[in-house]
Design a protein around this nucleic acid. Structure first.
Lengths: 213, 213
DNA sequence: CCGTATTAACTAACCGGTTGGATAGTATCT
DNA sequence: AGATACTATCCAACCGGTTAGTTAATACGG
């Protein structure tokens, strides 16, 4: 009765399904993901998806809500670091880099949803997701106001800021495959080296020129 | 028999199928795209896909080969512009921006393939696609060598360079939907304003500091 | 404690509907 | 007439979801 030998453990079952779902949804997308495959990877009957989550959509929603909340909490911590706007932005890039590296499945799922305009996102997930947008905006606004950054469009800058890192993450699978097959002329950058490069590129790009007020 | 009134026109049929395929593949991905839907949009029997292209995969490959070749030719023209490395890079950003704006379906299809490491790309398409990578590399290498750019990792810079623009394109559908529903706090940047912003961000970010050799 | 009724967790089999592709027959070219 | 282009129909495989039935965990009266 120590719990580890329990044959039936609904909590463990739910976690196993969610873990399998993250893999399969990331690999095949919502429509492409087969409930049979999720069930098989979790070593459970696919009917358990309906039993515990109300269906494929329910499982998808549950997994995304969990991941979005974790991501927001991690990124918030990055932005909330004390210091100048420059330091805050650097901390955010670091946090987003680490998140992209450690949660590639989440990033894949989210990217797929972005491509098809969030077709499979329920309202609740959408609302939760929009919380991301406010995170960086304030740092940029304040940095521009204080003169630490050039006078750039904060909205556009926000897109650029996230774009490079996400793109690095999205192309990672292909680059890894090519590297494995020896078809890459030069070695691909590591995560840490890329994040470092990106932080410098962005911060240099945002720095005011010498002649600015 | 001037051709425009022809009831049967295999060339027109092939084009109609490819046009419909671009829409459907971009919207639903390779697996999600239904041959019935493609046939319906082209106002043709779905058996024509098999007849003219040998199947779903054949049509997909055909469409991608065509689009990749067009994209490469357009981007090559951008890079080949005369002038300094800075001007060449600026021209490339412009060209990529215009391409992303004018060929959103192509970009969607390609992004989906990147996410799943090119699972549906036949070898021929892959080879054709890799040609992209070399395009910017040389401009960056020469710009660094000549001292126009900082001493950055060209591979990483390449990823950053493409990332922002592609991310802008990928999030466009969602941003458009949100704007339509009035759920966006601030208006989203237009294509031209974003490209302009991005060009400046990158070129500023790559510029050597005053103290550099 | 202890048998037993009740509930919760789980499985195997099945369902209507849809998929990409094949095939047979028809129309329209040269 | 013979090749080419096209349609209507069919098919095996597969999809997500449901269902009836089984077993493990739990509540409870004695």
């Amino acid at each position: 009765m120590d719990g580890t030998t329990a044959i039936r453990d609904p909590e463990r079952t739910r976690e196993a399904l969610k873990t399998a779902a993250r893999e399969v949804f990331a690999e095949y997308g919502f429509e492409g993901a087969k409930t049979r495959e999720i069930g098989a990877r979790a070593e459970l009957n696919k009917a358990m998806i309906n039993y515990h989550f109300g269906g494929k959509q329910g499982l998808f929603t549950e997994v995304l809500l969990e991941d979005i909340r974790e991501a927001r909490s991690r990124l918030s911590r990055g932005v909330a670091s004390t210091g100048s706007s420059t330091e805050k932005l650097a901390a955010f890039v670091e946090a987003l880099g680490r998140l992209s590296e450690e949660r590639p499945l989440f990033l894949k799922i989210l990217s797929r949803e972005l491509i098809d305009a969030g077709r499979h996102l329920e309202l609740q997930v959408e609302e939760e997701f929009f919380g991301f947008f406010g995170l960086v905006q304030e740092v940029l606004d304040r940095g521009i106001e204080s003169g630490e950054f050039r006078l750039v469009d904060p909205h556009a800058t926000h897109i650029s800021l996230v774009g490079g890192l996400v793109w690095f993450a999205l192309t990672a699978p292909l680059r890894e495959r090519l590297a494995r097959e020896g078809r890459l002329p030069a070695p691909s950058p590591t995560w840490s080296s890329y994040v470092e490069h990106y932080r410098e590129l962005i911060l240099t790009g945002l720095a005011p020129s010498a002649s600015d007020s």
